[in-house]
Amino acid sequence: MISEKMETALNKQIALEGYASYLYLSMASWCDKEGLEGCAKFMHRQSEEERMHMLKIFYYLSEVDGHALTPAIAQPPHEFDSVKALFEEVYAHEQKVTASIHGLLKIGYEENDHTTLNFLQWYVEEQREEEALMRSILDKLKLIGDGPQSLYYIDMEVEKVNAMAAAAEGAEEA
Rank of each mutant, 00 (worst) to 15 (best):
99 A>D: 12
111 E>R: 02
156 M>C: 12
146 D>T: 12
71 P>W: 08
171 A>D: 07
155 D>C: 10
70 T>S: 13
44 H>D: 04
156 M>F: 10
80 F>R: 07
7 E>G: 06
2 I>S: 02
32 D>P: 06
129 E>V: 00
74 A>H: 10
46 Q>W: 02
160 K>L: 08
46 Q>L: 01
87 F>Y: 15
24 Y>P: 02
72 A>S: 11
24 Y>F: 14
51 R>G: 12
60 Y>D: 06
132 A>I: 01
69 L>M: 13
60 Y>C: 05
143 L>N: 04
106 K>A: 14
37 E>I: 08
4 E>S: 15
144 I>N: 01
70 T>F: 12
1 M>N: 08
93 H>L: 07
108 G>R: 03
65 D>L: 13
130 E>D: 05
72 A>F: 09
39 C>Q: 03
118 N>I: 06
46 Q>T: 03
141 L>P: 00
112 N>P: 01
16 L>P: 02
141 L>D: 00
161 V>N: 03
76 P>M: 06
165 A>R: 02
53 H>D: 00
34 E>C: 02
137 I>H: 01
81 D>P: 10
10 L>D: 01
122 W>D: 07
19 Y>G: 03
24 Y>H: 07
61 L>K: 01
148 P>V: 10
93 H>V: 01
27 M>T: 00
27 M>D: 07
41 K>D: 13
62 S>G: 15
57 I>E: 01
162 N>W: 03
10 L>A: 05
168 A>G: 00
164 M>Q: 09
121 Q>K: 06
24 Y>E: 01
110 E>S: 14
110 E>Q: 13
50 E>W: 00
12 K>T: 09
159 E>G: 00
157 E>A: 14
97 V>L: 09
14 I>F: 08
12 K>M: 08
147 G>A: 05
92 A>S: 09
48 E>D: 12
101 I>R: 03
111 E>M: 06
